[in-house]
Write a protein that binds this DNA or RNA. Structure first.
Lengths: 179, 179
DNA sequence: AAAATATGTCAACATGGCTGACGTAAATTT
DNA sequence: AAATTTACGTCAGCCATGTTGACATATTTT
């Protein structure tokens, strides 16, 4: 408990703690008109991620593995540097999970044909199978959501998400996802 | 490198590793028609989260603190149990960050007036100020995205996110966000 | 020949999840 | 009144995944 403690009903003459007086009013609609969207994004992502999480435990993998498996399957032959740019993590973080996926036989590295310094990443058949298992429940979830929307509304969902992406990243992402 | 290694150009008679043959074809549009939406959600969330992250480092806090500060400010007097249900984490995980926020003077606990076992959570003035600083860049980001959408399209964005939430959670979330 | 690039690796550290066990005060049930 | 349940806190330890910094190697570019 905080050292400044008191009953909830004892009004305005309460002691003032180190952080100032207590605030009893919720963040107003004026302070944060978009709060519902902010929170929807949080809740949607929370549940969206929970589907593949359940699959991953069976393999002893985590979310980091999921991301790598996903993008390697979507872009077979992707360079390590490009994967790092997509995930926005350090090569040390990637290296750890990548090694496990290679050791497990889900991904293989192929020396780049032009530039032999490159290690192009390809899924194995097992890697492809894993990717499909991971994406299946998300397909269902997204598909069911889109089924309820009109064409205009779908466009809205897509545009909204695109505009939330950093301006400097939008073109790259658009190319990546093929839109 | 994987023990099974070879040049990228040497065709179909390649050795078969423990995960099966290499797969060179991208995940097809048929396998995953909603892949663009899946990835948009990933990229949007990635960047959406990066705004408050920058603010948090100045306080020595992380994303876990952000979530707690946010929901306590949106619902002053929230019970610990309800916060756990929103965040879907364990009380041990919450306890750690909550203690730091209380010690730092950003949140205070008040004994429940009816049920004195409860510790109702309130932001201090400092806690409110932090919440406002954290939400400001997200407000701008979301606001700018919504500005580009028609009413129909906005509805689409909102409905899409709502439908991605677990069916059993939707009503609770709707009440929570006031929609 | 020198410099830059693509990648890998070692060591150490921080955050924030988790489980399991146990404790305490207060409310509820019997 | 006693027993049980509930709300919350806490200790200890583990794991996944992010970080920085330094250094190594092979290859390409200058």
């Amino acid at each position: 408990m905080a050292d400044v403690n008191f009953k909830a009903e004892d009004g305005d003459d309460r002691p003032v703690g180190p952080g100032g007086r207590l605030v009893r009013e919720p963040l107003s609609e004026r302070d944060s008109p978009e709060a519902p969207y902010i929170e929807l994004l949080f809740f949607a992502y929370r549940d969206f991620i929970s589907d593949p999480d359940a699959v991953l435990v069976a393999y002893g993998f985590g979310r980091a593995h999921h991301r790598v498996v996903h993008f390697v399957n979507r872009h077979p032959g992707i360079r390590v540097a490009d994967l790092l740019d997509i995930l926005k993590i350090t090569k040390q973080s990637l290296g750890r999970v990548l090694k496990q996926l290679i050791d497990g036989g889900f991904i293989e590295q192929v020396q780049g044909p032009q530039d032999r310094r490159q290690r192009l990443l390809y899924p194995t058949e097992a890697g492809r199978a894993l990717a499909l298992r991971l994406i299946a429940p998300q397909e269902r979830r997204i598909g069911a959501a889109l089924d309820l929307l009109s064409p205009d509304e779908r466009r809205g969902a897509e545009q909204f998400l695109k505009q939330i992406i950093d301006a400097g990243e939008r073109d790259k992402v658009a190319r990546l996802i093929g839109r």
